[in-house]
Design a protein around this nucleic acid. Structure first.
Lengths: 126, 126
DNA sequence: TTTGTTAATGCAACTAAGTTGTATTAAATT
DNA sequence: AATTTAATACAACTTAGTTGCATTAACAAA
């Protein structure tokens, strides 16, 4: 909800995700835009873009927040419950285009799941 | 590795896990022992117990660290890669005794996975 | 194109989780 | 009981993220 203005900050952040089609950590974003966008603004821009279904967020190994572009999400429906893969060598995270089967749990109401697979990425496997 | 002494702090922490057989967040532990154990000590005790395969740690929804007793872990082998279930209502986390199947990923070396299932727990389902 | 509205920003100060260094204390060993 | 050294308390620090508020800049309407 709410009017989302195409501000300079929004454009800068969106271009970053367009340029490299992978997840970027908030820390990385705050750092790389430190001379152009205020830290607080980065956090708020990401919040807004997530609300609008443009980005989705999740947590990396150390509890650091990461963002990645959404594919099938909208403002009203967030279907992006795919797993993420974090490389233990280089630290990079990719979105995986596979489905994880969550088993039925008796007496519990499953609403979603966060799956972070760890290991060596393609580049670091050599 | 390393000699682990059965200190007062270690006993207090271990008793907490023995009393309630579920995961406890670091924040909770630091808080409930605030008048008996120093914050730094709580962190270091948990570190040691995890190294020794007594406890295992994982991250909750907000990137907060949680600990739970290990069942089949040892100092040398950590096999506890079961999923955890966090209730979106009451915030409590349980260890789930089910296996999650991680799909084979081409060109990647999978080392482990963190699975956090979210929803309503048994108590909050009513 | 100017004006008015208000979303968005910058800045400073703050909170909260977790870490580090160091002197002191208390397990365990002799 | 004396000795060794792991473990602790305390203070200070780091880092991720938030809050409040005055200012700025999108953007719509005149």
């Amino acid at each position: 909800m709410g009017v989302v203005r195409k501000t300079q900050s929004v454009n800068l952040v969106l271009n970053a995700f367009k340029a490299e089609n992978k997840a970027i950590s908030v820390i990385d974003l705050v750092d790389r835009f430190s001379d152009k966008i205020n830290k607080t603004t980065v956090y708020r821009v990401l919040d807004r873009l997530e609300d609008d279904g443009v980005l989705h967020s999740f947590l990396g190994v150390n509890g650091i927040k990461w963002y990645a572009p959404c594919k099938d999400c909208s403002e009203h429906k967030h279907t992006d419950v795919h797993p993420h893969f974090q490389c233990t060598d280089c630290g990079k995270i990719d979105c995986l285009n596979v489905d994880i089967i969550i088993p039925k749990l008796p007496n519990r109401e499953v609403a979603g799941a966060q799956v972070l697979i760890q290991g060596k990425c393609e580049a670091c496997c050599n």
